[in-house]
Design a protein around this nucleic acid. Sequence first.
DNA 1: TCATTAAATTGTT
DNA 2: AACAATTTAATGA
Length: 221
Amino acid sequence: MAFWAGALTEAEAQRALKGIAERRYPAGSYICHRGDRLDAWTGVVSGLVKLGAIAESGKAMTFAGIAPGGWFGEGTVIKNEERKYDVVALRDTRLALLGRATFDWLFETSVGFNRFLVRQLNERMGQFIATIEHDRIHDPEARIARNLAWLFNPVLYPRAGNHIEITQEEMGLLAGVSRQVANKCLARLEAEGLIVLERGGIVVRDVAGLARYDGSAVGGR
DNA sequence: TCATTAAATTGTT
DNA sequence: AACAATTTAATGA
Protein backbone atom coordinates (compact mmCIF):
# COMPACT_ATOMS: atom_id res chain seq x y z
CA MET A 1 0.00 0.00 0.00
CA ALA A 2 0.92 3.64 -0.04
CA PHE A 3 3.98 4.60 1.95
CA TRP A 4 2.15 7.20 4.05
CA ALA A 5 0.16 4.34 5.48
CA GLY A 6 3.30 3.52 7.43
CA ALA A 7 2.75 6.67 9.46
CA LEU A 8 -0.71 5.50 10.50
CA THR A 9 -1.82 3.22 13.26
CA GLU A 10 -3.31 -0.13 12.42
CA ALA A 11 -6.87 1.05 12.93
CA GLU A 12 -6.30 4.24 10.96
CA ALA A 13 -4.75 2.38 8.05
CA GLN A 14 -7.67 -0.02 7.86
CA ARG A 15 -10.18 2.75 7.75
CA ALA A 16 -8.13 4.62 5.16
CA LEU A 17 -8.08 1.54 2.96
CA LYS A 18 -11.86 1.37 2.95
CA GLY A 19 -12.06 4.95 1.72
CA ILE A 20 -9.86 4.35 -1.29
CA ALA A 21 -11.15 3.68 -4.78
CA GLU A 22 -9.08 2.97 -7.81
CA ARG A 23 -9.59 4.30 -11.32
CA ARG A 24 -7.85 3.89 -14.63
CA TYR A 25 -7.17 6.55 -17.20
CA PRO A 26 -5.90 5.97 -20.74
CA ALA A 27 -2.87 7.83 -22.03
CA GLY A 28 -3.58 11.42 -23.02
CA SER A 29 -6.89 11.71 -21.19
CA TYR A 30 -7.80 14.49 -18.81
CA ILE A 31 -8.32 13.33 -15.24
CA CYS A 32 -9.86 16.63 -14.33
CA HIS A 33 -9.96 20.20 -15.57
CA ARG A 34 -9.32 23.36 -13.69
CA GLY A 35 -12.55 24.36 -12.02
CA ASP A 36 -13.80 20.83 -11.48
CA ARG A 37 -14.82 19.69 -8.05
CA LEU A 38 -13.16 16.39 -7.48
CA ASP A 39 -13.39 15.68 -3.79
CA ALA A 40 -10.57 13.24 -3.47
CA TRP A 41 -6.97 13.14 -2.50
CA THR A 42 -5.24 11.38 -5.34
CA GLY A 43 -2.28 9.04 -5.52
CA VAL A 44 -0.53 7.66 -8.56
CA VAL A 45 -0.38 3.88 -8.40
CA SER A 46 1.16 3.37 -11.82
CA GLY A 47 1.68 5.55 -14.85
CA LEU A 48 2.52 9.23 -15.02
CA VAL A 49 0.44 12.38 -14.63
CA LYS A 50 1.08 16.06 -15.15
CA LEU A 51 -0.28 18.95 -13.11
CA GLY A 52 -0.46 22.13 -15.07
CA ALA A 53 -2.61 24.99 -16.27
CA ILE A 54 -3.20 27.13 -19.30
CA ALA A 55 -2.58 30.80 -18.57
CA GLU A 56 -4.94 33.40 -20.00
CA SER A 57 -2.15 34.31 -22.36
CA GLY A 58 -2.54 30.82 -23.75
CA LYS A 59 0.81 29.62 -22.48
CA ALA A 60 0.86 26.13 -21.03
CA MET A 61 2.54 25.79 -17.70
CA THR A 62 3.58 22.64 -15.88
CA PHE A 63 3.43 22.74 -12.10
CA ALA A 64 4.68 19.27 -11.43
CA GLY A 65 4.92 15.79 -12.82
CA ILE A 66 3.74 13.03 -10.52
CA ALA A 67 5.30 9.59 -10.69
CA PRO A 68 4.05 6.39 -9.04
CA GLY A 69 3.99 6.80 -5.25
CA GLY A 70 3.22 10.51 -5.46
CA TRP A 71 0.08 12.09 -4.01
CA PHE A 72 -1.56 15.42 -4.83
CA GLY A 73 -4.73 17.41 -4.38
CA GLU A 74 -4.61 17.81 -0.60
CA GLY A 75 -4.94 21.58 -0.95
CA THR A 76 -8.12 21.23 -2.96
CA VAL A 77 -9.64 18.81 -0.47
CA ILE A 78 -8.62 20.71 2.67
CA LYS A 79 -9.93 24.04 1.46
CA ASN A 80 -12.92 22.53 -0.29
CA GLU A 81 -12.45 24.58 -3.39
CA GLU A 82 -12.29 23.82 -7.05
CA ARG A 83 -9.21 22.52 -8.75
CA LYS A 84 -6.71 25.20 -9.58
CA TYR A 85 -5.03 23.20 -12.28
CA ASP A 86 -5.54 20.59 -14.97
CA VAL A 87 -4.51 17.01 -14.46
CA VAL A 88 -3.54 14.93 -17.47
CA ALA A 89 -2.50 11.29 -17.74
CA LEU A 90 0.65 11.19 -19.86
CA ARG A 91 0.43 7.44 -20.17
CA ASP A 92 -2.01 4.73 -19.10
CA THR A 93 -2.41 5.43 -15.43
CA ARG A 94 -4.01 3.92 -12.35
CA LEU A 95 -5.00 6.31 -9.61
CA ALA A 96 -5.98 5.74 -6.01
CA LEU A 97 -8.70 8.11 -4.85
CA LEU A 98 -9.12 8.81 -1.15
CA GLY A 99 -12.57 10.27 -0.64
CA ARG A 100 -13.22 13.49 1.22
CA ALA A 101 -14.95 11.84 4.16
CA THR A 102 -12.03 9.56 4.86
CA PHE A 103 -9.53 12.33 4.27
CA ASP A 104 -11.32 14.58 6.77
CA TRP A 105 -11.44 11.79 9.30
CA LEU A 106 -7.71 11.16 9.03
CA PHE A 107 -7.06 14.89 9.11
CA GLU A 108 -8.96 15.23 12.37
CA THR A 109 -7.76 12.01 13.94
CA SER A 110 -4.34 10.88 12.85
CA VAL A 111 -1.14 12.53 14.00
CA GLY A 112 0.90 10.49 11.56
CA PHE A 113 -1.27 11.56 8.66
CA ASN A 114 -0.84 15.22 9.52
CA ARG A 115 2.90 14.84 9.84
CA PHE A 116 2.95 13.40 6.37
CA LEU A 117 0.83 16.22 4.99
CA VAL A 118 2.99 18.93 6.51
CA ARG A 119 6.10 17.32 5.15
CA GLN A 120 4.59 17.07 1.71
CA LEU A 121 3.28 20.63 1.68
CA ASN A 122 6.60 21.95 2.90
CA GLU A 123 8.45 20.12 0.17
CA ARG A 124 6.14 21.44 -2.51
CA MET A 125 6.62 24.94 -1.16
CA GLY A 126 10.36 24.54 -1.48
CA GLN A 127 9.93 23.36 -5.03
CA PHE A 128 7.85 26.36 -6.00
CA ILE A 129 10.25 28.75 -4.33
CA ALA A 130 13.12 27.26 -6.28
CA THR A 131 11.09 27.69 -9.45
CA ILE A 132 10.32 31.32 -8.70
CA GLU A 133 13.92 32.04 -7.86
CA HIS A 134 15.07 30.87 -11.24
CA ASP A 135 12.13 32.64 -12.79
CA ARG A 136 11.44 32.80 -16.48
CA ILE A 137 12.89 29.57 -17.73
CA HIS A 138 12.69 29.69 -21.45
CA ASP A 139 15.68 27.51 -22.07
CA PRO A 140 14.22 24.10 -22.90
CA GLU A 141 17.25 22.31 -21.53
CA ALA A 142 16.78 23.93 -18.13
CA ARG A 143 13.08 23.04 -18.14
CA ILE A 144 13.86 19.43 -18.88
CA ALA A 145 16.44 19.40 -16.12
CA ARG A 146 14.06 20.94 -13.59
CA ASN A 147 11.20 18.59 -14.39
CA LEU A 148 13.52 15.63 -14.12
CA ALA A 149 14.80 16.81 -10.77
CA TRP A 150 11.23 17.14 -9.51
CA LEU A 151 10.56 13.53 -10.31
CA PHE A 152 13.48 12.57 -8.12
CA ASN A 153 12.49 14.57 -5.06
CA PRO A 154 13.21 12.03 -2.30
CA VAL A 155 10.48 13.38 -0.02
CA LEU A 156 7.68 13.50 -2.55
CA TYR A 157 8.63 10.25 -4.30
CA PRO A 158 10.52 8.09 -1.83
CA ARG A 159 11.26 5.31 -4.27
CA ALA A 160 14.60 3.59 -4.12
CA GLY A 161 17.21 4.04 -6.77
CA ASN A 162 18.03 6.72 -9.26
CA HIS A 163 16.31 5.25 -12.25
CA ILE A 164 12.96 6.22 -13.73
CA GLU A 165 11.00 4.73 -16.56
CA ILE A 166 10.06 7.55 -18.86
CA THR A 167 10.37 7.99 -22.59
CA GLN A 168 11.82 11.08 -24.18
CA GLU A 169 8.41 11.81 -25.62
CA GLU A 170 6.86 11.83 -22.14
CA MET A 171 9.71 14.00 -20.89
CA GLY A 172 8.85 16.45 -23.63
CA LEU A 173 5.17 16.47 -22.66
CA LEU A 174 6.14 17.18 -19.07
CA ALA A 175 8.47 20.05 -19.88
CA GLY A 176 6.25 21.43 -22.59
CA VAL A 177 8.65 20.93 -25.48
CA SER A 178 8.55 18.82 -28.61
CA ARG A 179 9.95 15.33 -28.64
CA GLN A 180 12.78 16.44 -30.91
CA VAL A 181 13.84 19.19 -28.56
CA ALA A 182 13.58 16.87 -25.58
CA ASN A 183 15.79 14.42 -27.42
CA LYS A 184 18.51 17.02 -28.00
CA CYS A 185 18.32 18.42 -24.50
CA LEU A 186 18.57 15.02 -22.89
CA ALA A 187 21.53 14.20 -25.08
CA ARG A 188 23.27 17.38 -23.88
CA LEU A 189 22.49 16.64 -20.25
CA GLU A 190 23.99 13.23 -20.76
CA ALA A 191 27.09 14.74 -22.36
CA GLU A 192 27.47 16.91 -19.29
CA GLY A 193 27.42 13.84 -17.10
CA LEU A 194 24.20 14.63 -15.24
CA ILE A 195 22.21 11.70 -16.58
CA VAL A 196 22.56 8.50 -18.54
CA LEU A 197 20.04 7.72 -21.23
CA GLU A 198 18.53 4.31 -21.67
CA ARG A 199 15.83 3.02 -23.90
CA GLY A 200 12.57 3.92 -22.21
CA GLY A 201 14.27 5.22 -19.12
CA ILE A 202 16.74 7.61 -17.56
CA VAL A 203 19.37 7.14 -14.87
CA VAL A 204 20.14 10.27 -12.90
CA ARG A 205 23.73 10.74 -11.81
CA ASP A 206 23.46 14.16 -10.20
CA VAL A 207 20.02 15.21 -8.94
CA ALA A 208 21.34 18.35 -7.26
CA GLY A 209 23.05 19.32 -10.48
CA LEU A 210 19.76 19.02 -12.35
CA ALA A 211 17.88 20.98 -9.71
CA ARG A 212 20.14 24.01 -9.95
CA TYR A 213 20.70 23.74 -13.66
CA ASP A 214 20.19 27.17 -15.17
CA GLY A 215 21.47 26.63 -18.68
CA SER A 216 24.68 28.55 -18.11
CA ALA A 217 26.52 25.74 -16.37
CA VAL A 218 28.81 23.52 -18.37
CA GLY A 219 28.54 23.77 -22.09
CA GLY A 220 26.39 26.81 -21.50
CA ARG A 221 25.05 29.07 -24.15
C1' DT B 1 16.42 -21.89 -28.00
C1' DC B 2 16.24 -19.56 -32.28
C1' DA B 3 14.02 -17.01 -36.13
C1' DT B 4 10.44 -13.94 -37.61
C1' DT B 5 7.37 -10.22 -36.93
C1' DA B 6 5.21 -6.43 -34.75
C1' DA B 7 5.41 -2.50 -31.81
C1' DA B 8 7.74 1.05 -29.35
C1' DT B 9 11.42 4.33 -28.92
C1' DT B 10 15.03 6.97 -30.55
C1' DG B 11 17.87 9.75 -33.80
C1' DT B 12 17.58 12.86 -37.94
C1' DT B 13 15.91 15.74 -41.41
C1' DA C 1 5.65 16.11 -39.24
C1' DA C 2 7.72 12.34 -41.54
C1' DC C 3 11.27 8.91 -42.04
C1' DA C 4 14.90 5.52 -40.90
C1' DA C 5 17.35 2.94 -37.48
C1' DT C 6 17.40 0.42 -33.28
C1' DT C 7 15.59 -2.14 -29.44
C1' DT C 8 12.23 -4.91 -27.15
C1' DA C 9 8.23 -8.08 -26.90
C1' DA C 10 5.56 -11.60 -28.75
C1' DT C 11 4.88 -15.53 -31.47
C1' DG C 12 5.68 -20.00 -33.22
C1' DA C 13 8.67 -23.57 -35.06
